[in-house]
Simulated assay, not measured.
Amino acid sequence: MEFEKYNGLGNDFIFIDGTGEAVELTPQQVGFLCDRHFGIGADGVIVVRKADGADGYMHYINSDGSLAQMCGNGVRCFAKYLVDHGMVDASSGRLLAMTLAGPRPIAFDVDDEGKMTVATVEMGQPILEPAEVPCLLPGASLGRLGTVACEQAIDSPWGPFAFTAVSMGNPHAVCFVDNWQALDDGLFTDAERKGLDTLRIDEVGAWYESHGAFPQKTNVEFAEVTPEGVRMRVFERGCGETLACGTGACATAVAACLTGRAERAVTVSLKGGALAIEWGEDGVVRMTGPAAFAFSGTIQL
């Protein structure tokens, strides 16, 4: 099987062309492809398929073999795949990507060779109604945007954490930490340097990912406000910690605005780099960031 490898801020994906013939992968095959020791290594697999009324359909599969409705970094890489392969007119500057979460209009820039460099994705309006996220948080309150779950405390073995529930086509639980020193020492790889960088997100993120408050599991973000904007780390549902998460950055920006921590336009910094996020007055969240080609090859399944 031929493949190509792309990444958006280090969030990496294996691309397989499914436009000519049907490509169906088992969870075991996806796990092998994404394995960083025995396979190619990636956070997920994207099968490129044709779509009626759109330039292509992005079929995204998490590294554990589960389907994902949407992936922000993945859809920018998907746009680059379509542009760089001549499946859309590079001079048009726009395309429409179909996903399980619905259509996503994308504006893009290209370099002198006609290869895509940066894309702005219309990620749609955030879903804030708890039942539609979905989440089961009893303290959800009625605000000007309807019923929203903001800063709702959920207990854990390390004490309670307050989450804001947002869906960007996939569920997110965003926790802003205002006082790292108040948290349990066991949450950090270095108790002398408590902070976002030393947080054991692989443990606490995994614990909340499967919490009963989230019937379809959830992506988990821990974040803090800085003079430059917002910093965050993410434990992705069905994947684990990744260097970046586009939908997570969008959800975090929305949560920051909802809780009064940021304006509607904010820079969200992740381990792999920064994304510009704007929650427009029209309700649509727009994400701007890069996408890069890494390498291509063949592998036997």
Rank of each mutant, 00 (worst) to 15 (best):
L96R: 14
T117M: 14
F163G: 02
I46H: 05
S66V: 12
G146T: 01
V166Y: 03
A251G: 04
F222W: 02
Y60N: 09
V225T: 04
N179A: 07
K194F: 09
C175Q: 01
V166F: 02
D185G: 13
G212M: 11
D282C: 08
L196S: 03
S92A: 12
A119E: 09
E132Q: 15
P160C: 05
V230M: 01
A140Y: 04
Q29E: 14
N11C: 04
A165M: 11
C77I: 03
T298M: 08
V234Q: 02
S141L: 13
G229Y: 02
A251N: 00
D52P: 06
Q216D: 13
T198L: 10
V174H: 02
N62C: 10
D89L: 11
T298L: 10
N73F: 03
L9Q: 05
C71T: 07
S92Q: 12
L96A: 06
A265V: 04
L301E: 14
Q152M: 14
F161A: 00
G41E: 08
N62M: 11
V83F: 07
E236W: 06
M123Q: 04
K50Q: 07
E241F: 05
A182R: 12
L199W: 02
E281D: 09
G139I: 10
T288Y: 12
P103F: 10
D197M: 09
E4A: 07
G280V: 15
G143P: 05
D197L: 07
V220M: 04
A292N: 08
V88M: 02
A276R: 04
A131W: 10
D197V: 10
L258H: 06
D84V: 05
A119W: 09
P290R: 01
I277V: 07
M87R: 07
G248M: 01
C250F: 03
A42G: 10
Q28N: 13
T247G: 00
G297H: 13
N11V: 04
